[in-house]
Design a binder for these strands. Structure first.
Lengths: 240, 240
DNA sequence: GCATATTTGTCCGTATGTATA
DNA sequence: CTATACATACGGACAAATATG
């Protein structure tokens, strides 16, 4: 029987497809409930962390040898990830890392406007959850001071995740996580993302202040404006 | 000592032969894209149509013989449906039709309040999409006149789907479809659903009127009240 | 346009661990 | 506790679709 946690095999994928080379050292992760789940988690993380870039092809055989699992296991994991829209399958051609187009970006922002604004305007506030929003604001300010752009991007995502978490709904949280994962794909697929998030730090702080002071309507309006600006800003530099 | 859920279904997973009839008909429909997709669609439909009841166990082997496909194909399809939350997997025990508990119901309504209210309050109105809302209202009135409770339930779902569709966002539509699928599981898992939807017909019509007249805020408030009433009404008669 | 190699889609057999009777 | 059924995972096989030279 196979034990999931052992045997850190530094797999070298020295092949023509350099896309999945990053899967090395993933084997060291803790065992999951099932191998399939473990493979899905590994691939998902590679994608959201940007080590597997949008549009990359994921040949089954290569994943098999890389992760040392059977093809069936890989295919099951991929079925999951396709259902999560992390990967897309082109019949008889293979699975690829999703590559959002401009319409996808517009739609993501449309959905975010409904969800985030809906939460800010109507959700029941909880001081503990509001504290998480404040923490995300500070995290962003710290990242700006540290000059780490990746941390700033993460902090921004944490802020919006915390906003939606105000509603206290696991289902909304999951949906938001999906939308934010798609946003990471967008960022990974473009070039000039270095300073993208910086202008929005002030907006984050202002939204938090308005929430803290109980001015829900103004906070909601600020979120709307924030998202419209970000969408326009993003589309302006997005190819295709 | 744990009891499996009753697996009595239209797919007839209990008997070796009785399934042949329904399956011959189903099997005759040529697989659209892939066999896996076809199996996933078939199982999904069985669930949302209520022929596979919440809590039912889906043994792989029976599905295989019933649909005449291999275990690999079935497992791939199930991985998809688990990711969609239509099915739930209990490790080493099997896959079951999801059975929402009271907390799930509360969360579904929490999410619906954010999404539906957010759309009604802020989405850009489109006369064509608003017309679809009106059509759903009339569909419900027709179902009431016809005395078909199933049609009435469907019409109600169409109404709320049309509401969310006002936003014109495929991602929100998909999320709403998931939430409504979960609602169907709730209805299929309880007994006294016959007249559940009838009291809400008037609310549907009123919400549509308010939208038509451009009174977004009042429409949003009506949706909030609607959803709170429905949630309370539903939880009052829900077991566990 | 054609022949060939590669990859996917699907099936089968089998081994092993886990849960339940 | 033992026995049985089943989920999990592996590896091999082959046709069909696709990519490649």
């Amino acid at each position: 029987m196979k034990r999931y946690g052992d045997a850190v095999t530094a797999l070298d994928l020295s092949g023509p497809d350099a896309a999945v080379d990053s899967l090395a050292a993933v084997r060291s992760q803790a065992p999951r409930t099932s191998l399939t789940e473990w493979v899905a988690d590994a691939l998902r993380e590679e994608v959201v962390e940007g080590r597997l870039r949008p549009g990359s092809r994921l040949p089954e055989q290569r994943i098999c040898t890389a992760l040392k699992v059977s093809r069936n296991t890989v295919r099951e994991a991929m079925s999951q990830l396709v259902a999560e829209r992390v990967l897309v399958r082109e019949p008889h051609r293979g699975v690829f890392v999703a590559r959002p187009d401009r319409a996808a970006i517009r739609d993501v922002y449309r959905a975010r406007r409904v969800i985030e604004v809906g939460v800010v305007r109507d959700a029941e506030l909880d001081s503990e959850r509001l504290e998480a929003v404040r923490a995300a604001v500070e995290e962003g300010q710290g990242a700006l001071a540290g000059g780490e752009w990746d941390d700033l991007a993460s902090a921004n995502q944490h802020f919006h995740r915390a906003l939606v978490a105000l509603a206290g709904s696991p289902r909304l949280d999951q949906q938001m996580a999906l939308l934010l994962a798609e946003m990471r794909l967008v960022f990974h697929g473009m070039s000039g993302v270095r300073g993208f998030h910086e202008p929005y730090l002030a907006g984050n702080a202002r939204i938090h202040e308005l929430l803290e002071s109980g001015n829900r309507a103004a906070a909601a309006d600020a979120v709307v404006e924030y998202l419209r600006e970000a969408e326009e800003h993003l589309l302006a530099g997005y190819p295709e």
